[in-house]
Amino acid sequence: MTEANISARERLIADILSRAGLPNAPLAMPKQVIEVQSNWIFAIYARLVRRT
């Protein structure tokens, strides 16, 4: 493929993508709290693995 062809192909794809965007209708999605400060099961594992 020549450089001109590559450039034409890139322009074409950019052209396609410019029409492809999603509707602009934002919605908040707050991060949830799912981690506890003291997870004793995981704490034991972390200690064991660190020791090995």
Partner: peptide, 21 residues
């Protein structure tokens, strides 16, 4: 798979940056 694409088809939707491809 290239259909006819003309510059008039470009919409006002938030565009995906060309470098994304």
């Amino acid at each position: 798979p290239l259909p006819e694409i003309g510059p008039e088809a470009i919409s006002e939707d938030e565009p995906v940056p060309a470098d994304a491809a």
